[in-house]
């Protein structure tokens, strides 16, 4: 099976200059290899650095040491050393991300937010919105909400918008940060199906699943981030 995401000795330490240079080590020496079709669940207690690791994999956090590599366009791209526009291209076509909290852009409707990843891939506006509508319907988001900006939605509704936004692009590598956290049982099941469907189409997934049931249902293996805290 082809590896799509790799890390080599990945380490992250925060340095708080505002606190006199206080250093907060998060993890160190992480070697990961995620292949197509598998779902790697990151485990560890709250605060152990799971989210930080995920963000490092996305390029949202810089690596203090080590490297993140993504298989993009038939070759390995070092996310840690790539130019910003390369990172953006990787994110557009290869690396998808479902964040824990939806970042709201004022005045943009839910439908347009979800359609945006497709627009960036060159899909025409109407077709993109049509597909976005399908995703939202699948996630049980009522049609009357589609033309509203999601700022006033409930946590669960926002999370479903987030999931649609993260998965609609069909990227081969997906990073999921607590995708079912605010969802009820029905919606959780729908998301689990979506994740399984992504695995089936060959996506390599790295996810944080707070819920044991969800993790057991979708993950093919686990990785304990807490083990890689420098204090260990």
């Amino acid at each position: 099976m082809t590896a799509l995401l790799e890390t080599t000795q990945l380490s992250k330490t925060f340095t708080l200059h505002g606190r006199g240079g206080l250093e907060l080590p998060v993890f160190s020496g992480i070697d990961l290899k995620v292949v197509a079709g598998e779902c790697l669940a990151l485990t560890g207690h709250s605060g152990s650095g799971k989210s930080s690791l995920l963000r490092c994999l996305y390029g949202n956090y810089g690596a203090s040491a080590g490297e993140v590599r993504v298989f993009h366009d038939g070759q390995w791209v070092s996310l840690s050393n790539a130019a910003p526009r390369e990172v953006l291209d990787v994110r557009r076509r290869t690396l998808g991300y479902v964040s824990q909290f939806l970042r709201v852009i004022p005045r943009v409707s839910t439908l347009d937010i979800v359609a945006e990843p497709l627009r960036r891939l060159g899909v025409a506006a109407d077709a993109a919105r049509a597909e976005a509508a399908q995703w939202l319907a699948r996630l049980n988001l009522h049609e009357r909400l589609w033309h509203l900006p999601p700022a006033t939605f409930s946590g669960g509704e926002q999370q479903r918008v987030n999931i649609a936004h993260g998965l609609i692009g069909g990227q081969p590598v997906l990073l999921l940060d607590e995708p079912t956290a605010s969802l009820d049982a029905d919606n959780r099941r729908i998301v689990m199906e979506l994740i399984r469907a992504a695995r089936t189409r060959g996506a390599a997934i790295v996810g944080i699943f707070h819920d044991d049931e969800v993790r057991e249902a979708v993950a093919s293996r686990c990785f304990d981030v807490e083990q890689h805290h420098p204090s260990h």
């Binding site: 200059h17 963000r55 390029g59 949202n60 956090y61 910003p84 990172v87």
Partner: peptide
């Protein structure tokens, strides 16, 4: 650097 990186993980 990348906008979200600089804003979410500021180094300086």
């Amino acid at each position: 650097g990348l906008t979200d990186r600089v804003l979410d993980d500021p180094q300086h």
